[in-house]
Design a binder for these strands. Structure first.
Lengths: 263, 263
DNA sequence: TTGCTCCTCACGTCACGTGAGGTGGC
DNA sequence: TTGCTCCTCACGTCACGTGAGGTGGC
């Protein structure tokens, strides 16, 4: 006969766990000796190992209870379901490893390799660290909403960095972000942004391309605009200046009066 | 500005979880509007996603708290440790899948493929279901103690099933297990077991082989003997009859008087 | 007025862990 | 007598879930 600690050792569990399974009705209470100690036979080891094998696989104890009393066909179906769940958990853990690996690579969280390459390129091109961080935080928010679209979008943005005009626009912004509030050069920046947008919209219209970024929900656009407004002191003033020049929004910037044509 | 439910949606968590992170000090309490509602800026989304990425990877919230305040080198080391743990968990889940798969294959739990093959062979050879189950339960208990030795041991046992003498011994036992208590044929069984053991020990001595199964702890041997004693009504009587013939034990059966030679 | 979101307690959940206080055989 | 194992409450842990009861703007 076995004591409770011997039983527990044979199955690799704690004494407390065995008592817990008794209390839950998973393992029948055995007889007691003259001191009131529980005494187990060898069969109890087998039953306890059955319980642990299911519990280790993540089956809740209430479900283990049902399965111990179930017929073979229900049992087989349940085991199938458990295995499906285990496969899903393995996939989840592998996804978590990827996110964690990006964390270790330095560029914050929740971003795919294409995004990391994009930020690397921004740094190589000499953009300031605050500028890169605002970009990165924006893309973390986008990735939280549209994880499947981020790799393609980032690849596009990465390619845009080879375009001199886009690059000059970004450098302009990076510089403006360093202005003291009320800097007199801000209206000039607004003029250049406005001119760039006019050219961009004109080209898009000539090519018959309409806004293809409507994957972005209104909520997400508002969130990204918000982040931009918080990113440097004069950001709200820059948007005001752009409104004076006929543009609304930022992330999805567009003409204020589409009928009047922004040219 | 964002409400708490908007913030939660952007990061894919529940409102309750956000409040929980406030209570734990993981996420700073934002300002309130005139109704007492919390109002968040875009930066809070990024912070919340950082928290969730770590928590999803299995980092306890207390540790997340530390890591958010940690320097880059401690952070990198912690991420390394997290990744090691994730790899370990993936291995564990794959092991659980294997055990669950054996469960689905029908032959109970915690047994490797070699064991399943052994029980299959026993059934093919016509052994009774109770006999196979006693064998199976014994090996579940052995596997709980010495998982790494079971495949080799089972392969050996599987090979022994091709030996006519071993096979006759097993059939003898299977039959005896079906006897009514007090069956007059039991002493004859004891005689044949005794003869077989005498031959086995003589051969082992001639070949200079000593007991190689001392991987089995005394406790495990006692447990397996116990299981055998419980397996059929006359099992205790069979062991008594064997003791009269000069043998003690069952799992690790041996001569009662090694000096006197059991011949 | 109704429905929706927000608020703060505060108890519940799951699978045990961890003392607290006591007993029984060597 | 001391040390060890066993016993039964019963509260603690972790990361929230889930009402309970109430407020504020449409």
């Amino acid at each position: 006969m076995l004591t409770i600690s011997q039983l527990a050792a044979h199955a690799g569990v704690t004494v407390r766990a065995v008592r817990h399974y008794h209390a839950k009705g998973l393992l029948p209470e055995p007889g007691r000796d003259h001191s009131g100690y529980r005494r187990y036979d060898a069969q109890a080891v087998v039953e306890l190992i059955r319980i642990r094998t299911l519990a280790d696989a993540g089956v809740p104890l209430s479900r283990v209870h049902e399965l111990l009393a179930a017929g073979p066909e229900e049992f087989a179906a349940a085991v199938e379901a458990v295995d499906r769940r285990l496969r899903g958990e393995i996939r989840d853990l592998q996804r978590h490893r990827q996110r964690i690996a990006q964390l270790a690579a330095g560029d914050s969280l929740a971003l795919p390799a294409e995004a990391v390459a994009y930020f690397e390129r921004l740094r190589e091109l000499g953009f300031s660290e605050p500028f890169v961080e605002v970009e990165r935080d924006s893309w973390i928010m986008i990735a939280a909403q549209l994880p499947q679209h981020v790799p393609a979008l980032m690849a596009t943005k990465r390619a845009q960095l080879d375009d001199e005009i886009v690059l000059r626009f970004y450098r302009d912004l990076d510089e403006a972000a360093g202005f003291e509030p009320g800097d007199p050069r801000l209206p000039e920046v607004a003029d250049r942004v406005s001119a760039l947008m006019t050219a961009t919209f004109a080209r898009a219209e000539a090519e018959g391309v309409s806004a293809e970024d409507d994957q972005f929900s209104d909520e997400l656009v508002a969130l990204l605009d918000e982040a931009f407004l918080d990113s440097f002191p004069d950001a709200p003033r820059l948007l005001e200046l752009l409104e004076e020049r006929g543009w609304v929004g930022w992330t999805m910037i567009r003409p204020a009066h589409p009928g009047r044509r922004a040219v």
